[in-house]
Design a binder for these strands. Structure first.
Length: 298
DNA sequence: GCCCAGGTGTCTG
DNA sequence: CAGACACATGGG
């Protein structure tokens, strides 16, 4: 009998697991975790090998249980940090709610989805990959492409006869050729961008640590958009989902535009200019506002 | 068949 | 610096 690791994750007051699970469950094609009976199950790559972890509510804290594999102290710290980042637990979102209370568009959303946190993608390589996959295609197809990438080039662990996938490492993707991805129905450009970014991560030219060491958001954006395949939208997407920039604002996002259109009950999508005008009230919280607006679409 | 999709790079005026 | 356009492929 091996001892099972159990991690306790403390929670802020403005947190509702049901709301966050509802967001996580938005696609039935998600390939990187599963949701069962109020528990989130996900595989993690650790130095000691892959581990499947369940995350669920236990009283007023989250409890993470290691189901297979074993975590040393370093692994436990890494998984705890990942979960805190994933659910954005170390951020005081009261100022966001305060701002939203005075905003026609956001007020009903913060009421309806109270306790929803900006669900992140802690791994920057995964965040940028997902941005590239999602460019200019519908979300359903994007999930299909991600699933094929993950299943073909990522590791997986079995638990209870089910496979739990881990997003492919930069090294694994860096070794691919576009012709490896074309049969999975990646366009030539997506394949080229994805492999190029993987190579930059594998070589150390790009890293989350380095991006985070840059204090100026403008400089972060500039560095990100200097990479082939990362435009303004993808840079802001990664900044809000991975770099904890709550003011990141992917204005060109068609989902965001549609959400505003629906909520305002108007015939056409707002222009970028109109969105920027609207977002003047959101200063510092554009990323959170965007996230709640996306949530309104499901 | 047609329009749209969680865009980007490149070219042109 | 703004605007037009090619790219690429599935979903509805």
């Amino acid at each position: 009998m091996s001892k099972t690791n159990k991690l306790i994750i403390t929670l802020p007051a403005e947190f509702d697991l049901g709301q966050n699970i509802a967001f996580l469950g938005r696609s039935d094609r998600e390939s990187l975790f599963t949701i069962e009976n109020g528990l989130v199950l996900k595989a993690f790559a650790t130095d000691g090998g892959p581990a499947v972890v369940s995350i669920g509510l236990q009283g007023d804290v989250l409890e993470a249980n290691v189901l297979t594999g074993k975590l040393d102290a370093k692994g436990e710290a890494a998984v705890s940090t990942y979960i805190r980042d994933w659910f954005d637990l170390d951020n005081d979102i009261r100022p966001f709610y305060k701002m939203a209370a005075g905003d026609k568009l956001l007020k009903p959303l913060t009421k309806k989805f109270f306790g929803l946190r900006l669900i992140g993608i802690p791994d920057l390589f995964e965040a940028l990959s997902w941005a590239i996959i999602g460019q200019q295609i519908n979300l359903a197809f994007a999930y299909t492409l991600k699933q094929r990438l993950v299943e073909n080039f990522g590791e997986s662990v079995k638990y209870n006869d089910k496979l739990y996938n881990i997003f492919p490492s930069p090294k694994a993707v860096a070794a691919l050729r576009p012709d490896d991805l074309r049969p999975l129905q990646f366009s030539g450009k997506k394949a080229e961008y994805l492999i190029g970014i993987a190579q930059k991560f594998a070589s150390g030219e790009l890293s989350k640590e380095h991006l985070l060491s840059i204090e100026s958001r403008e400089q972060q954006e500039k560095l990100l958009t200097s990479v082939h395949g990362i435009g303004k939208w993808s840079a802001h997407y990664a900044m809000m989902k991975s770099l904890k920039d709550y003011s990141a604002f992917p204005v060109a996002d068609v989902g965001l535009q549609n959400a505003v259109k629906v909520l305002m009950k108007v015939e056409r999508k707002p222009t970028e200019k109109e969105l920027l005008q609207m977002a003047k009230n959101w200063k510092g919280w554009e990323g959170y506002a965007t996230f709640y607006l996306w949530r309104s679409l499901y």
